[in-house]
């Protein structure tokens, strides 16, 4: 009995040391050297060195002059992030979708892209499908007094097309590029 107990404790200690300490530390050390950017959270800094976000975490954008992100059920909270978990049959879902449609396009005939009126799984989805970004071009172009063609070009540059997933645009990166254009104009 005592011997079994000793073996069990020994096993837990060995595995803890190997997989709970050495393994994560080895991966941490290795990746801090190989891929330091990603390992530290793909942080975006401005010219002053201030952290402005992470390339991978969506941010809230409001107003006509920005491309809006995927709606978030938790208003882009990160500690913790979360989702609506609304069932498709929950009447609340249809109510929310209706509200988002009327906020986006009160009198448009053109159907609104699904991604712009439903909340994401993580609450911090950084991407939008290309169609949902193109849908916003007209509004942003007007607000910024830019040509739609210039915006379309910018979107094309920021479009990611994996062969195994939908074509998406990183909204944060796109808005950052938009901000740069604004800066150079001023």
């Amino acid at each position: 009995m005592f011997k079994e107990f000793r073996t069990a404790i020994g096993m837990l200690l060995c595995v803890s040391l190997l997989t709970g300490v050495l393994y994560p530390l080895l991966i941490t050390g290795l990746t801090q050297v190989l891929f330091p950017e990603q390992a530290k959270g793909s942080l975006i800094r401005d010219a002053q060195g201030q952290v402005r976000g992470s390339h991978l975490l969506g941010q809230s954008f409001t107003g006509a002059a920005w491309f809006h992100s995927r709606p978030s059920a938790v208003d882009f909270a990160t500690l913790p992030s979360g989702a609506s978990n609304l069932a498709p049959s929950n009447p609340e879902l249809a109510v929310q979708v209706r509200q988002r449609i009327s906020a986006l396009a009160p009198d448009s005939e053109q159907p609104v892209p699904m991604a712009l009126v439903t909340t994401s799984g993580s609450g911090v989805d950084p991407h939008l499908p290309v169609g949902a970004v193109l849908y916003q071009v007209h509004r942003v172009a007007q607000a910024r007094q830019l040509s739609s063609e210039a915006l379309m070009q910018l979107i094309e540059v920021h479009t990611e097309r994996p062969f195994i997933g939908p074509a998406v645009v990183n909204v944060l990166a796109l808005n950052q590029a938009l901000q740069m254009i604004g800066v150079t104009r001023e």
């Binding site: 995927r70 989702a83 978990n85 159907p111 991604a115 439903t118 994401s120 989805d125």
Partner: peptide, 16 residues
């Protein structure tokens, strides 16, 4: 509703 009648994206991420 005036929304694209695709599969639901509620609770799903754009990149998937």
């Amino acid at each position: 509703l005036p929304v694209e009648q695709t599969g639901s994206l509620e609770g799903k991420e754009s990149r998937f």
